[in-house]
């Protein structure tokens, strides 16, 4: 979503990097910023995490996204299948564009080791402040560190993950193809990459911009730019180009009557017209040598 934009609005342009953050510890919050700034971050975190606030739709979508990630990892036999409560034990995740930490916290609760990364330093502060309010996140089986960094920097540092989650972020980056290529570098061979975004269709314009932003104000106007939406065909091409094999595509739809999101099979008419989520497996080196042009007409089915 538009973490950067919201924070820019909240904080103006005054917040600049003071000194390199001390990654991975709540302490760094206190050691790098003054108390007045902390209070502002705390208020921003409260806003960000308000279940009825600007990010309500994202809050409601999160359980569905996590359920999908869980199911797909189980499907490919990754994680601790014996633990119903902590299935992600032993897996290292990257939550790229972590925002206030919505996805990261859920992954940690399920036993994962998570790096939550965001290019906006404010988001990292908020995420740390919020996570510090929940004891399980500190003492559970999983662990997390929030880093103010980019996918490019992580790749340069040679970081590798069992799973990379780029959820509701691609529609906010400058060059989605390059972004996905870099994300692909961050996935271990046979690891999974998850991407969710909004399809670029007239329907998605009508619902996500005209209705959701301007008429119903479910999300603040200016959250999305329709031109930045990525079609499933493009997504599959980007992923294949990043050395990944697409495993599955599902639609996600919101039912305003029940206030719940749900997954659509991806095979029904209109299933992928709006929000969708893709999972892909990073191929091992041998698989990647033969270039595989993607037939875009294969499209919405995904290759299984």
């Amino acid at each position: 979503m538009h973490h950067q934009r919201t924070l820019t609005r909240l904080f103006g342009r005054r917040l600049t990097h003071r000194k390199p953050p001390q990654y991975g510890s709540i302490r760094s919050v206190t050691s790098t910023v003054d108390q007045a700034e902390i209070a502002k971050f705390a208020r921003a975190a409260d806003d960000w995490w308000n279940p009825g606030g600007e990010f309500a739709m994202l809050h409601r979508m999160n359980p569905v996204r996590v359920g999908y990630v869980r199911d797909m990892l189980e499907h490919v036999g990754k994680g601790d299948g014996t633990s119903a409560a902590k299935p992600f034990t032993g897996l290292r995740f990257l939550d790229i564009g972590c925002g206030g930490g919505l996805l990261s916290e859920a992954l940690v609760r399920l036993g994962a080791t998570v790096v939550g990364a965001d290019a906006a330093e404010e988001n990292i502060h908020m995420a740390r402040i919020h996570a510090a309010q929940d004891p399980t996140l500190q003492f559970g089986r999983g662990s997390f560190e929030y880093r103010h960094t980019t996918a490019e920097q992580l790749a340069e540092d040679g970081e590798k993950f069992d799973a990379v989650c780029a959820l509701e972020i691609i529609e906010h980056v400058v060059d989605p193809q390059e972004f996905i290529r870099v994300c692909g570098q961050l996935v271990k061979p046979n690891g999974l990459i998850f991407c969710s975004t909004i399809n670029r269709t007239p329907t998605s314009y009508l619902f996500t911009i005209l209705l959701a932003e301007h008429l119903l104000r479910w999300v603040p106007p200016g959250t999305h730019e329709h031109a930045k939406y990525v079609t499933p065909e493009e997504m599959q091409r980007f992923l294949t180009g990043a050395g990944c094999e697409v495993l599955d595509i599902k639609g996600m739809s919101f039912n305003p009557a029940s206030n719940q999101w749900s997954l659509l099979s991806g095979r029904g008419l209109g299933d992928l017209q709006m929000n969708y989520i893709v999972s892909a497996r990073k191929m091992v080196a041998e698989e990647q040598v033969r270039p595989e042009p993607v037939d875009s007409s294969e499209g919405q089915e995904g290759s299984r």
């Binding site: 999160n62 609760r109 399920l110 029940s258 206030n259």
Partner: peptide, 20 residues
Amino acid sequence: DGLQVGQDIGHIHLLEKYAQ
């Protein structure tokens, strides 16, 4: 259901399902 997807079980969105 909430635990399956790593939700905070005190979260109002999860509790709403019970109330509904």
